[in-house]
Design a protein around this nucleic acid. Sequence first.
DNA 1: ACGATCCTTCGGTCCTCGCCGAAGCACCCG
DNA 2: CGGGTGCTTCGGCGAGGACCGAAGGATCGT
Lengths: 239, 239
Amino acid sequence: MKHGPNIATVSALAGDPARANILTALIGGQALTANELALEAGVTAPTASGHLARLLDGGLVAVAKQGRHRYYRLANPDIAAALESLMTIAELTDRPRTRLGPKDPALRRARVCYDHLAGELGVALFARLCDTNAIALSGGDIRVTPSGEAQFFRVGIDVGALRQAKRPICRSCLDWSERTPHLAGSLGTALLNHIFAAGWATRLPGTRIVRFTPAGERAFASWPAAVGPIEMAERASAA
Amino acid sequence: MKHGPNIATVSALAGDPARANILTALIGGQALTANELALEAGVTAPTASGHLARLLDGGLVAVAKQGRHRYYRLANPDIAAALESLMTIAELTDRPRTRLGPKDPALRRARVCYDHLAGELGVALFARLCDTNAIALSGGDIRVTPSGEAQFFRVGIDVGALRQAKRPICRSCLDWSERTPHLAGSLGTALLNHIFAAGWATRLPGTRIVRFTPAGERAFASWPAAVGPIEMAERASAA
DNA sequence: ACGATCCTTCGGTCCTCGCCGAAGCACCCG
DNA sequence: CGGGTGCTTCGGCGAGGACCGAAGGATCGT
């Protein structure tokens, strides 16, 4: 009567409002202390502590103690992806059609999804990478094409180096606000890091919101630049 | 302090063992009666009825009354996709490393995911379609290529007709046993229907298992169409 | 070494919710 | 129009667990 993995235990963990708030806060990607999470969840410290112990036991979060602080974070990027995927169906099924707060439009525009970019701009980036053939489907996984690798190299991202790590380079992550995928994986992380390093955007403290400067958004809109035929030839002959 | 859709309500619905069993049973794709679901969940009829009322209210399932029977089914294919995605992380985080029953290998081999094929063979099919350039990434969505459309047409699947419906043709769905996507959407449904119509496989009654005949599996292995020499050359030069 | 800060464990209260048996509708059949 | 079947509602029981205040480690600063 029951086959396959048991959904119930995991769902029950995410099913409590306080724990859901904690998990949602952690999608931001940065590790938070128990007190910060208690505040975020709207419960007292002891209550939050109990919840965190449960999440830890369930394998959804991990902890790193540093002095008298304990920094909690999601156990791995897949958890973030699953949570976003849960949000997509919550968005559909929630009865009180999501009373959207003032920050909501900004969240939908651009936000952090654990360690990569999500929202309209995240989805747009993904679409751009597809349209310029920088990435392509390959046997159920997403792959960086040779021309894409050259593109990324020109803007300072070394895909070859990313290949060393065991973590997947490209992974799709379903965007809850756009209902279409955006790019996760180590390449997604590298791209987001570049956006911050270039000063195109900053994080709104304490939220997942990514705020682009006007100039930054202009630069981002045609990034990474498509490789022209001349550069292609140069690069080919150089290699 | 809380932004975005509320995960908690949806997760709480899936967080009860009885309800989780009900939902898992419904991933099979066929609508089941309240009594069948009660049996599946291991609870009495009144209890199941209460759970179903809750799932209905939460928008996770839909019901169609037919005579004195009430047939319950998942509210839409996206729910099935989200549930499979939940299974992927349940598979990772569950403490008692998934005691696999006797049917488990068959489930992993090939199973129904609401209305399309999942498991090893489902993932293999998806990979084959990518490798033969029948489908490709396009702006965050999966698209049927012209050559793919011709391929499908040859085996009796009219993609043009599928385009009439508002339902997306291609959609990726994360496979919990393979941890890599397989094909959902109306094309995925059409492909699965073809598999049954051709007599290559049958459903094991009362389960999600799809049992291929030896001959059927051989035919399926190089389906829809072997790559012609011209396309092969194209791919070779591209790489 | 002392207080301050962060976090957890403990004890106790309260309430939600899962569960069943029995009764009540709704519908089909003879 | 009764009897049988499928499903739901009702009443009551019991357990799990969410919550907080207070107290107990652990660790830093001075």
